[in-house]
Design a protein around this nucleic acid. Structure first.
Lengths: 206, 206
DNA sequence: TCTCCAACCGACACCTGTGTCGGTGGTTGG
DNA sequence: CCAACCACCGACACAGGTGTCGGTTGGAGA
């Protein structure tokens, strides 16, 4: 232990790379892709600007890499929170809780992945769209039986509208929660899940 | 009538200003504030770049003006579509229909006003936040009686969560509709309103 | 301890965008 | 018809961003 981690100035390439990615997540989330400069990210990573180019081909390359990593993290974390079994109602509640929990712990990741950021770059927009449709698909299959029971066949307009409203609505709640952190996960989850399952007039019924 | 409108090259100041604002709405919506350049907007308005500075102090000034105008238009159009009277359920349906209709007719306005665009500029972000809370307030008062009947007092956490989920969820549907224009306003409105009023398992019941 | 790889950086070239200024010519009221 | 106003523009100065290159030095393996 001749060189403690705190004193070490020169990191190994993977470690530095990881720090750059972490910094990039924050800066991209805070300012958006276009407004975030490589200089900002490098400074946040505690390194000179050119070091970034030793690890990533370009700013766009870094961004795509960040998207990939964060999307995988989100799928893993949210997916793990969903118990496949149980009544539809409990499954819904578990999913909402998992997403809200993830969004609370990694607000920057949520923002980068979910908030619609127009970049004008075809490749970047395509990547974001791909992630989004994957999420939609996942939710659609999760709710498949419940939707079918309500007479909404898979792929129908009505089913797609329902799924879209669920996803964006819950994400909106996540955004609200981020700005009002006093509320507890339980109460927020409860209200959201009950609204979606019972409807507005029956919110009080469990 | 020596100079017809089609041949006229030199517009009056207000007319030119209006065209610049219209072009700015499109460009800002397509690329976001930071990535949209004054040159892009000027070209879209069919005019040289410097003309823009004869009408607006700066790019930021133009943006704030655009936000103001579009927000007013949205409030007017959506507000007009809401019938104050009627059962809570019908009021909800009318509001959803009004918003979806607006979003369909003016997709760029919807995008600029509602999609969360991080600019990093305090004044701009503050303006957007102001518009957003105003919208939230409007929806909250509209649903006030229904929320109270469900035991959610005005201003409570639960009430705010419900309102947030409604707004963002319906906006998500608007976004979906924009990318799937085949669906009719009636069916989309119907599904969204029924989901929010009846809950997922009772979607089929009218 | 010595050596050598690679993590790191300063300086440079280039591009794109914003905002300014002086001038030019279409348009219109007299 | 003509003179003055003002809508319009080209060219400029400047700021800030991206990506490159050659050199420097920490630190791990011998």
């Amino acid at each position: 232990m001749s060189t403690s981690e705190a004193v070490r100035r020169r990191l190994s390439a993977p470690a530095r790379r990881e720090r750059i990615e972490a910094a990039a997540v924050e800066v991209f989330a805070a300012r958006g892709y276009d407004a975030a400069s490589v200089g900002d990210i490098a400074r946040a990573a505690g390194v000179s600007r050119t070091v970034l180019y030793d690890h990533f081909r370009s700013k766009r390359d870094l961004y795509l890499h960040v998207l990939d990593t964060q999307n995988a993290a989100m799928l893993a974390e949210v997916g793990a929170g969903i118990t496949g079994a149980g009544a539809g109602r409990d499954r819904m509640r578990a999913t909402v809780a998992a997403y809200l929990s993830f969004a609370r712990q990694r607000p920057s990741a949520r923002r980068i992945l979910v908030d619609p950021i127009p970049t004008g770059d075809p490749e970047l927009d395509r990547a974001l769209r791909t992630f989004r449709t994957a999420r939609t698909q996942a939710v659609a299959t999760m709710l498949g039986s419940d939707l079918a029971r309500s007479g909404l066949p898979h792929g129908s307009t009505a089913a797609e509208v329902v799924v879209e409203l669920l996803i964006t609505g819950v994400d909106g709640v996540a955004r609200w929660w981020q700005e009002h952190p006093v509320a507890t996960l339980d109460e927020v989850t409860d209200v959201a899940a009950r609204l979606l399952w019972n409807g507005l007039p029956r919110l009080a019924t469990p």
